[in-house]
């Protein structure tokens, strides 16, 4: 057929294993060259592991009323309680709960709500953004105008509104049980807009690329083109936004809980803990406030910095 001998460089003829290629990829390389990313990733991993394995790590079960001893109340960090002799690493709160344990358990709630809310926002946003850009016309106009309107309100207000409505239509006896899910719904619905906007922008670029035209040409359906061709190519920016959104969602949850409209005191999240703690700020029991706040700060900041690095690492323009 053709008399072209294949003179490809040897690097392309023998293929190293998938793992090895992944390890040598630019992505990992850029990670190992960024101290900020490595420290942030370390902090995030430690905190997430702590939350996941809270039942194994936590010295006390803070939500088991039987294990609580009111005599343990207000024990300062690292010192033995004057009545019971119990020692708490980060002290105990007014009800004698171990602050360290409540933080571990609180983080579970915070992270769960954060992840679930971002997942919801991402699903809604990516779907609507993709449809808006691919279908165009009045569908696009309606979706994007709704997005614009929502964007004019602060996300936390939208979340409070949704939370309030949802709580209002829930019978009082179920309110505490569904509070977490309502929280996820509220934060998720308040956050889909940026996903939709970014995906729409990226899709508008991708849908005019020639590989999409080639797919149209061979008769692939609109759905197949959207899901199999365009979607994988617009996921990079989505990943970046999802990471930064995760930090924002955790803070939004904390804000709502701090304002008393979020996680109930029986299932406290970091925000609830901070709300409880701030009552004792000026009476000298600083540890009840400071430790949950520091955890929230470390968690949100690390995720955010990780998102920043991800954006740079995935940006082809910045690659050497």
């Amino acid at each position: 057929m053709t008399d072209t001998p294949d003179h490809r460089p040897p690097e392309m003829q023998a293929r190293p294993s998938r793992l090895r290629r992944a390890w040598e990829s630019d992505f990992i390389y850029s990670f190992t060259r960024s101290p900020v990313a490595m420290v942030s990733a370390f902090v995030v991993v430690v905190l997430v592991l702590g939350a996941v394995f809270a039942p194994l790590i936590a010295p006390y079960d803070p939500f088991n009323p039987a294990s609580l001893n009111l005599m343990n109340g207000f024990t300062p960090p690292g010192t033995a309680n004057q009545f019971t002799g119990d020692v708490f690493v980060m002290g105990s709160d007014d009800q004698g709960r171990d602050v360290f344990s409540t933080i571990l358990y609180g983080m579970r709630i915070s992270l769960f709500v954060g992840f679930a809310a971002v997942l919801l926002a991402m699903t809604i946003g990516v779907t609507l953004g993709l449809i808006a850009a691919y279908v165009g016309g009045w569908v696009e106009t309606i979706i994007m105008r709704i997005a614009d309107v929502q964007l004019t309100f602060p996300a936390i207000l939208v979340a409070m509104l949704i939370f309030g409505i949802a709580q209002g239509i829930t019978p009082p006896e179920y309110r505490d049980q569904v509070a977490i899910w309502v929280l996820i719904l509220a934060i998720g619905l308040s956050d889909w807009v940026q996903f939709a906007r970014v995906v729409r922008g990226a899709t508008l670029v991708e849908k005019n690329r020639e590989y999409v035209q080639a797919a149209r040409l061979v008769g692939r359906s609109g759905n197949a083109i959207m899901l199999r061709h365009i979607l994988p190519n617009v996921l990079n920016p989505v990943l970046v936004i999802a990471t930064i959104s995760l930090a924002l969602a955790i803070i939004a949850e904390a804000t709502l809980s701090f304002l008393g409209v979020g996680a109930p005191p029986t299932k406290p999240s970091l925000g609830t803990l901070i709300r409880i703690g701030q009552e004792f700020m000026f009476s000298g029991e600083w540890w009840i406030l400071i430790f949950p706040s520091a955890t929230l700060l470390a968690l949100a900041l690390s995720i955010n910095l990780l998102g920043d690095w991800l954006r740079d690492a995935l940006n082809p323009k910045l690659r050497a």
Binding site: R209, E210, Y211, Q213, A214, A215, L217, V218, G219, H229, P232, N233
Partner: peptide, 21 residues
């Protein structure tokens, strides 16, 4: 559909015409 299948196209930019993923 049957007739259309007899037409195929090759594009100018070999970088943009293959789905990178």
């Amino acid at each position: 559909v049957e007739v259309r299948a007899n037409l195929q196209m090759i594009f100018q930019d070999p970088y943009a015409s293959l789905n990178p993923r």
